[in-house]
């Protein structure tokens, strides 16, 4: 079961803060982040990559996106 971060409806910089918190906690594995704006999608992806995590997939879901990031 992957960790899921639900950042839908939250504005900048909450989605990135929540993602960073999970990355710190997990240090590796897979995290799924739910966001509802393109800005959050870009910011979360950029933040994950800056921590050396790989953005494995981004797919549209409902009114937003589900972002999968993987750290090893």
């Amino acid at each position: 079961m992957n960790t899921i971060v639900d950042a839908r409806g939250l504005s900048c910089p909450q989605p990135v803060l929540m993602t960073m918190d999970e990355i710190k906690k997990a240090s590796q594995g897979e995290i799924e982040i739910l966001v509802d704006t393109d800005t959050s999608k870009e910011n979360v992806s950029r933040a994950a990559e800056s921590k050396g995590w790989e953005v494995k997939g981004v797919r549209e879901e409902g009114e937003g996106y589900r972002i999968n990031i993987v750290g090893s």
Binding site: C12, P13, V16, L17, M20, T39, E42, N43, R46, A47, S50
Partner: peptide
Amino acid sequence: SRFCTMGAFRDLILFRQTH
């Protein structure tokens, strides 16, 4: 581009992100 003059400093301070 999501240009933001406050976010520029905030991200630098909070995440060390320079974007």
